[in-house]
């Protein structure tokens, strides 16, 4: 339960981690990672009731699934900064023999990861399955998931949305990273989602919307609001408006940093905008 000032310091350090990890091997996805830094920081340092001594089954603890696995840098940084594994391991990201694969996986036994994701559209189904098991186990804790907005173009997502409301899966809070951009450009140019909120409502979900998804206090507030809405017969979705590349001025307002690493000079500028707070890995 860190205060907002502390959480902002963590978020700044996480942004540095993301930039340095992606730069170090000239590959990875900084844009979406930076855009979700505040969400991850709020979730792991404030919202989740979780056990850093990782256990796959996660009995009696809140469980989080990252469905848009390509934003692994922010996930890894936050897991390490929480204490799931050593911060120094972040330097192995995307390198040979690393547990920090390009996309998150259970395959290498990295603490904190419960499912492999990367091929999009699969995480919501998994989260629903996990939520069902929690109910069967009379486990009162919650399941959280995060999805890219572009990812919603995958059909499986809509199968899962339909299933969750039809079966009253009400112990799940699924957040959509609504930055309105994907690799090839603006979502509205690639394949429009239309009125997302109305679509989710018509699929039987309770829908919250937060327009300042890069403000930690707002993220915490909306997640707490969502928590209060659980166990009432309906699944809960949060449309979280974020800015891809948030925190680095030249990465914001464009889709171009979705999957491109900064060069040496760009890294220097980006890090100057995000001064070290907790110590680099």
């Amino acid at each position: 339960m860190n205060n907002i000032n502390e959480l902002n310091q963590i978020a700044t350090q996480v942004r540095r981690d993301i930039l340095r990890m992606v730069h170090a091997n000239n590959s990875g996805h900084p844009g979406g990672s930076l855009g979700c830094t505040e969400f991850f920081t709020a979730l792991y340092f404030n919202i989740l009731n979780h056990n850093k001594n990782f256990d796959m089954d996660g009995i009696n603890e809140d469980i989080f699934f990252l469905s848009n696995g390509h934003i692994s840098p922010v996930y890894y940084s936050v897991l390490a900064r929480c204490g799931y594994f050593k911060i120094s391991e972040l330097s192995t990201f995307r390198k040979l023999n690393s547990r920090l694969q390009g996309h998150p996986t259970t395959h290498e036994g990295l603490e904190g990861i419960r499912i492999s994701t990367g091929s999009l559209g699969q995480g919501l189904s998994v989260a629903i399955g996990s939520a069902i098991t929690k109910k069967l186990n009379n486990d009162e804790s919650l399941v959280y998931s995060l999805h890219g907005d572009g990812e919603l173009q995958e059909g499986q997502i809509w199968e899962a949305l339909m299933y969750a409301s039809g079966n009253k899966i009400d112990n799940i809070i699924s957040t959509i990273d609504y930055n309105k951009k994907q690799i090839d450009g603006d979502i509205d140019d690639v394949l429009p989602l239309g009125n997302l909120k109305e679509k989710l409502i018509s699929f039987g979900w309770q829908v919250l919307e937060e327009r300042k998804g890069n403000k930690i206090s707002n993220v915490i507030e909306i997640l707490n609001q969502a928590k209060k809405m659980t166990k009432k017969g309906k699944p809960i979705a949060i449309i979280l408006h974020t800015e891809m590349g948030n925190g680095v001025d030249f990465m914001m307002g464009t889709h171009k940093w979705h999957g491109v690493a900064p060069n040496d000079e760009q890294l220097k500028i980006a890090l100057e905008q995000n001064p070290e707070t907790l110590g680099d890995y």
């Binding site: 796959m56 089954d57 996660g58 009995i59 469980i63 699934f65 419960r114 499912i115 559209g121 699969q122 995480g123 919501l124 189904s125 998994v126 989260a127 629903i128 399955g129 996990s130 939520a131 069902i132 098991t133 929690k134 069967l136 186990n137 486990d139 059909g155 499986q156 199968e159 899962a160 299933y163």
Partner: peptide
């Protein structure tokens, strides 16, 4: 597709 994903998730917690 949803069935396979749900089944995968159900294993987390011992089912």
């Amino acid at each position: 597709a949803n069935m396979m994903g749900i089944a995968a998730g159900m294993t987390i917690g011992g089912k």
